[in-house]
Amino acid sequence: MTPSTGYLLYLLFAMGGAGLYLLLPQPGKSRALPGVALSVLALAGLLSVLAVKVIAPSDTSAYFCLFSAIAIFGASRVITHRKPVYSALYFVLVVISVAALLVLQRAEFLAVALIIVYAGAIIVTYLFVIMLAQQSHETVYDTRAREPFFAVLVGFVLMAAITGKAVEPATTSEAKIVTAQFAQQNLAGAIEGLPEGNTADVAAALLTKYIVVLEIAGVLLLVSMVGAVALSRKKIPVEGHGLPTRPLGQIGKEVEPF
C-alpha cells in the first residue's frame, strides 16, 4: 500500500468512527439515520479501496471483500445493537465470515474448529446466560453507552497506528529489504503453494513442536472448568446440612430463585 491509500484509509476510519459514535446506544432522539449513512459510506469506501487493490479476474478476492464486509458489518452490530441477544447472533455472523476468510487462506481445519468451538459452544452458552438473565424488554444500561466519544476516539487512534505501520514506506535500509522480501513473496503466491487440506499439517505441528503448549492448554481448560463450577455453585438450603432450613417447595417463592 502507498501513503496516499493510507490517508484515504484514515479518512474512511474517521467517517466510520463518526458513524459508530452516532450508532452507539445513547439516550435522546435517534441518530440512527446519519450514523447508518456514514458507516455504510465508510464501509463501501473501504471495500472499494481493498477491491481496487486486490481484485484480479478469476480469483477468490471477491470472496475476501464480501466476507470482510459481512464481518465488519456484523462486528459493528455486535457493539451497537440494543438487545444483547441480537449482539450474540451478530457475533455468530462475525464468526462465520471470519471462518470463510480462513478458508480463503487454506486454513480449513481452523475455520471449522472456529465454527464448532465459537458458534457451536461458546455463543450458545452466552445465549443461555442472556436468556436466563434478561427477557426481551430493553434495559437502561443497554440504551446508554459509557463515554461513546472517547471509546470511538481510542478505536480510531488504534486503527490509525496499525494502518500507519501497515502502509508506511520503509525508511531504514534493513526495513526496505524486509519490505521488498515481503512484497516479492506476497500472500498470493504463498497460499497457492499450500496443499488443499492441511489437517495433517495442523496435527503434526500440534503434536510435535507445540506439544508442551498443548498440555498447558489442557491444564488451563481444566482449571477453567473447576473455576466455573466453583464460581457458579449455588448452595440450596435443605435439611440435614447444618444450614438454615427452608421448607421444600418454597425455593422460588420465598427464596430468590437464581
Partner: peptide, 26 residues
C-alpha cells in the same frame, strides 16, 4: 468433498441448536 468433510458435518450440525434456542426464547 472437502478434506474436512466430517468436521464440516459436525460444524453444521452444531449450528442447529440456534433454531431451537431462538425459537424458544423469541
Amino acid at each position: 468433498s472437502p478434506d474436512i468433510g466430517l468436521l464440516y458435518i459436525l460444524g453444521v450440525a452444531s449450528m442447529g441448536i440456534y433454531g431451537v434456542v431462538l425459537g424458544g426464547w423469541s
